[in-house]
Design a protein around this nucleic acid. Sequence first.
DNA 1: TCCGAATTGTTATGTCAATGAACAATTGAA
DNA 2: TTCAATTGTTCATTGACATAACAATTCGGA
Lengths: 159, 159
Amino acid sequence: MSDTPKDQVSGDTAADRFLQQFTGYRIKRALLVVHEDMTETLVPLGLRVGTFAPLAVVAANPGISQTKLSDVLKIKRSGVVAVVDELERIGAIERKPVAGDRRTNALFMTTAGGKLWQQAEAAIQAHEDRLFTDLTDEENDQIRDLLSRVILRAERAKE
Amino acid sequence: MSDTPKDQVSGDTAADRFLQQFTGYRIKRALLVVHEDMTETLVPLGLRVGTFAPLAVVAANPGISQTKLSDVLKIKRSGVVAVVDELERIGAIERKPVAGDRRTNALFMTTAGGKLWQQAEAAIQAHEDRLFTDLTDEENDQIRDLLSRVILRAERAKE
DNA sequence: TCCGAATTGTTATGTCAATGAACAATTGAA
DNA sequence: TTCAATTGTTCATTGACATAACAATTCGGA
């Protein structure tokens, strides 16, 4: 195989280019690098990729229930339990009883959690700026719009 | 919470819109729906999302080694073993010894595998056309170009 | 008012994709 | 020739989910 004698940048081979004809594969690869960089960004804060989104939702929706959270995050209620456990354990949020319904937990951020969220949001904003720095603002808007349309369309089709 | 009384389309709440300010989250959600639809598309062919890409690479690179395959797919050699096992078990590809090197396996598609690949490629092409039908050709090119730049940039930064 | 159905959070268990560490066989290089 | 590197492999583990069952609680209709 003399056409690829020893290339460090293996993302530039003919085989790779062939594979990237599929948009789905590109999305996967893009998520891979984003996930990796995001993980490194959140480690110093004691957060993970899987706890950032829940924290964001609770920050924006004080008193949200776990079921509602599972709905927003598109994960099952059983999965929410572990995530809320973790965020509660590190003291970022807390479960509180709800007046009219003893089944439900209302999720609130602690004051420590508020500060943590401020840092996390700034860190992730910087991370995205860094990763997407090649893109103009217009391109950034475009890519987000296109992704949204794909998501909405597919979800509507599932009904 | 009277602002979201009972919406079936939970992807349209304020909470969700807030979360989607992060491009990384949109990518994740997009991959989720793409992955789901792709799975349904491949089931009738006896393939999975995780076996489609390897099959594509072997189709385009007859005689490729497992290590090279792991390099192209960005997964570890140990992970390739299981995938190649599966593709060999369903009779799509086969391991063949290499003349000059008794360590290496050369991967080739069987004739049955060739037909399977033809069907799979067509099915996935239809799947992408269906999912991305809202997008013009130009937008499709754009989104792929933008994703590529994100991927290349992030991978170069890791060196 | 009462009783069955639905909802909420939870536990236990499984699955799927991928990783890391160790290993034998083989090859390459000093 | 001998030591380092490479290839494929096994095994144990992880992370991020899903499914199924369950107790406690609430709701809705006879």
